[in-house]
Write a protein that binds this DNA or RNA. Structure first.
Lengths: 229, 229
DNA sequence: TAGGATTTGTGCGTATGTATT
DNA sequence: TAATACATACGCACAAATCCT
């Protein structure tokens, strides 16, 4: 109740919040290829940028390493992990199955705010079809992913799906650019997927939403593999 | 090729190995209830015991915190996380589905050494039915789990299943003891499950093995819930 | 081949927060 | 209520490892 108590709890919250914020921001940069695979990250530079010291930043990088997004090598540096096609294939297969599970495990019927947000994203996606860049596409994809994740109330499922998403999406984008995938077509297909999801939501069929997502993740990976051959 | 190169790579491996060893050991103690929920762990004590300083030990505890096994509170200590029934239920449901997936995602047909090891465990399990303690039961369960995990070649699936296993098993054991579950009966049922798995393996039916495991995980949780009422 | 520059890993003193007396 | 004890969080200095000249 005293001012010191209020301050201390605020600070305690801020400590954890700052950690999560730094983690989310660096993860975002990796996913958007601001830090492409192979990029060397500097503990001191990042610490200075976020206004802290090496110790808290090392904790963030350690978490990213446990998630498989970076790899720290003594005397070398902290490197953004590179594509591993075999691992990517396994991660994609697992993502397919877990995405389908979101329709069966603790499905959460969306409220009005959810629908409003989805409609806003669909509109934004339509505007992006013609003039969108790969980076904008990925940022948009991330927003949609985070929104649709709310359709399951199973927290550990959310966590796993989130880890898999960030681990696979950036490699998909890297490979898609290299394979010269038609990103405009990808935009159109994604937009069509979102409209299908909205229709399924209007029927209140969350299992259908999950299967639509599964189908599109599967097809997206198939298109990429076809291009690579 | 030089001696210095060989030494350096050995040392580099040892650093990572020591981290993994400390992590696995502490995780094991938590799962075996040597460190029960609510127990306060001391950074300095653990560091001294493992012959290192606080910094590497803090990295281990941070990883355990990210995995949800402990929680560090500034000014309080590092506490083994307590039972959260709602979370436990979600984790169990997810474990069910992921266990079934092991039969479909990159199934690995076991070799002779695997069968030999399974038979050894089945024999040990039979001896343990009459005289086994809860701690021995859990240690035995952990060994079986690690062995059966090899039946899928999908590495991210293994990782997720391993995390969920350690997060749920210790809480199950805590609750089972409190609810005065008949552990001898649990032994017998577990032994029967292992025999069923061996029969399925002789048929080379890994999907059946997965479904047998799923069924027993489900029934085990049902028995616990029934006792709690 | 050797040495210096750079990077991560480690150890420890201090700051900060909490609980108890 | 205040002070003391004790825990984690932080920052810095140094060790160890790698790479490049």
């Amino acid at each position: 109740m005293t001012s010191s108590t209020a301050t201390s709890s605020d600070v305690a919250g801020s400590v954890r919040d700052r950690h999560d914020a730094m983690h989310a921001e660096i993860r975002r940069r990796i996913c958007l290829l601001d830090y492409p695979p192979g990029q060397r990250l500097s503990e001191v530079s990042l610490a200075e940028e976020f206004g802290t010291s090496r110790t808290p930043m090392r904790r963030v990088l350690a978490r990213l390493e446990d998630e498989g997004l970076v790899q720290s090598l003594h005397g070398v540096g902290t490197l953004v992990t590179d594509a591993d096609i075999a691992a990517l294939e396994q991660e994609y297969h697992l993502r397919l199955e877990l995405t389908e599970l979101t329709g069966r495990l603790d499905p959460v019927m969306p409220d009005g705010a959810f629908i409003t947000e989805l409609d806003r994203l669909i509109t934004r996606g339509a505007d992006m079809i013609e003039a969108g860049t790969p980076r904008e596409f990925t940022a948009f994809d991330m927003e949609v992913f985070q929104l649709l994740l709310q359709l399951t109330g199973n927290l550990p499922l959310r966590d796993v799906l989130e880890r898999l998403y960030y681990k696979t999406k950036r490699i998909w984008l890297t490979a898609a650019i290299e394979a010269q995938l038609d990103l405009h077509q990808e935009f159109r297909i994604f937009h069509h997927e979102l409209e299908a999801i909205r229709i399924a939501l209007q029927s209140g069929d969350l299992d259908a939403v999950a299967h639509i997502q599964r189908a599109h993740i599967s097809m997206s990976f198939q298109r990429l593999r076809k291009k690579r051959d």
